[in-house]
Design a protein around this nucleic acid. Structure first.
Lengths: 227, 227
DNA sequence: GTTTAATAAATTGTAGACAATTTGTTGAAC
DNA sequence: GTTCAACAAATTGTCTACAATTTATTAAAC
C-alpha cells in the first residue's frame, strides 16, 4: 500500500490515513499491520507508527495482541448490533442539536459534502462513496456542537465501514441512494420529527442490508474446507 | 503523591491509578503531570508513563500541550453541560438494557457496590464516596452489555468527577444520599419507567448542585485582581 | 508421510541517550 | 526599579540499539 506523502506526516495524520484506508476497504478487517512496513511506507520512524497504532487501538479500529502486533479489528455480529443500537440512540440527538444550533456555515459545509457524494456516485467510485457516506455522519456530529458525541461518532463511523466490509454483500450497489440529502433537506426546514425519522430509517436500511446472521463474509470457513 | 506498588505496574494499571487519583480529587484539574516525577513515583521508565498519559489524553482526562507536557483537564462550563446532556441521553438506555439483559451475577455485583458506598458514607470518607459514586455508573454500563456505551461511560464518569471538583462547592455534603440504591431497587423490580425517571432525577440533582454559571471554583480571577 | 524438536528469522517491546523546546535565572543597561 | 537579553536548567520529543517474544524453517525420529 502506498502511503507516501510530500512532507513528513505527524502521528495524527498517519492515524487518519490508515483510518481512511480502512474506511475505503483498502485495508480489510483482520489484516496485520506490521510496524516496520508502515514505517517505510510513511517514511517515518517505527516509534511514530507505534503511537498511531495505539491511538487507533484506543478508538477500536485496530486491535493489539501482546507481542503479536496490530490487526485491523474484526467486529463480531454482536458488536455490530450494539454499534447500530448506539447509533440509533445518538444520531437522533445529533439531528436535534444540529437543527437547534448549527450555523449557516455548518449547513453550507454539509451541502458541499452532498455535492461531493453525488460526484463520487456519478464517477462510480465505490471506495470514495463508502468513505464519504461515513464522513457525512461525522460532519453532522461536528455540526451538532457536542464534543463528546462528536468524538463517539468519529469512532463509530469507521467501525461501521468495517462492519459493512465484513457483513455486506461485496457487490451491493454502494449505499442507499440519496437518503443523506433528504435528511439535510428536513434539517434545513427545521422539521425535527421528520429528520429524525429519516435518520432512523437510513440506519435501519444500512443494518438491514447486512447479513449479521451468517458468518463474516471474508471469513475463511476452515471447517468446511474438507468435504 | 505516592503511587508505589509491590509489582511493576503495566501501562493500563498506571492509567487506572492516575484516573482513581483524579476521581478522588487527589489530583486537581489543571495540575501538571511531570513525566519524570511520575516515572519515579511508579518505579517505571518514562516511556511507560508517556504511554499512559497519551492513553488518558485520548480519554479526555488529561490534556497534552505540545512541548509543555500533560495537565489534568479543566473542563469548561460548556463542556460540563454537554457532558450531562450526553449522560442524560445514554444512561436511560443503559437502564433499559440492564433490566433486559443483566444477569443475576451483575445484579449481585451492583448490590455489593451499594454496600461499599454505604460503608464509605458511614466512614465519612469523602474521597472514596466521590470515586465510588462515579464507579457506580460505570458498573451499570458494564452490566448493560453494550461495549460502546460502556467505553463512553468509562470516560464520562471520571470527567464528571473533574467537573464536580471544579464547579461544586468544596464542602458540599458528598453526594445525593441513596439515589443509587433506589435506582437499583427499581431495576430489580424491572420497573423500567421508574428506573429511568430516578436516573434522570439523579443526574439532574448532580448538575443542579454545580455552579456552571460562575467561573470555576479554583480558578484564579486574574481580571479582578487589580481594583 | 507426519509429528516433534531444534534452530533461525522476523517482529514486537523497552530502555536509554541525545536533540529540541520551553521555562527560569542572572546580570547589565537604562 | 524595570526591562531586556543572554545564559542555565528543566522538561519534553525522537531516534536507535538491544532484549524478549513469536513465527517460520529445517532436520531428525517414528
Amino acid at each position: 500500500m502506498d502511503f507516501s506523502q510530500p512532507q513528513k506526516p505527524d502521528v495524527a495524520q498517519i492515524a487518519e490515513r490508515i483510518t481512511d484506508a480502512v474506511m475505503e476497504h483498502r485495508l480489510p478487517p483482520g489484516i496485520k499491520l506490521v510496524e516496520e512496513k508502515l514505517a517505510t511506507a510513511f517514511g517515518v520512524s517505527r516509534a511514530k507508527i507505534r503511537q498511531a497504532l495505539s491511538l487507533l487501538a484506543k478508538e477500536g479500529l485496530v486491535t493489539l495482541h501482546a507481542n503479536r502486533g496490530a490487526f485491523v479489528t474484526r467486529p463480531t455480529a454482536a458488536e455490530a448490533r450494539d454499534l447500530f443500537a448506539t447509533r440509533r440512540l445518538i444520531e437522533p440527538e445529533i439531528v436535534r442539536n444540529v437543527i437547534e444550533r448549527a450555523s449557516d456555515e455548518d449547513l453550507k459545509r454539509l451541502q458541499a459534502h452532498l455535492t461531493e457524494e453525488a460526484d463520487a456516485r456519478q464517477q462510480g467510485n465505490r471506495r470514495r462513496i463508502i468513505r464519504l457516506s461515513g464522513q457525512f455522519h461525522m460532519l453532522l456530529a461536528q455540526a451538532s456542537g457536542n464534543k463528546f458525541i462528536e468524538k463517539m461518532m468519529s469512532e463509530l463511523c469507521p467501525l461501521t465501514c468495517l462492519i459493512i466490509a465484513l457483513y455486506d454483500e461485496p457487490q451491493t450497489p454502494a449505499c442507499p441512494e440519496d437518503e443523506h440529502s433528504q435528511i439535510i433537506e428536513a434539517i434545513t426546514r427545521k422539521d425535527t420529527d421528520r429528520a429524525i425519522q429519516l435518520m432512523l430509517n437510513h440506519l435501519e436500511h444500512i443494518e438491514k442490508e447486512l447479513h449479521l446472521d451468517r458468518p463474516a463474509a471474508r471469513d475463511i470457513q476452515w471447517e468446511t474446507l474438507y468435504g
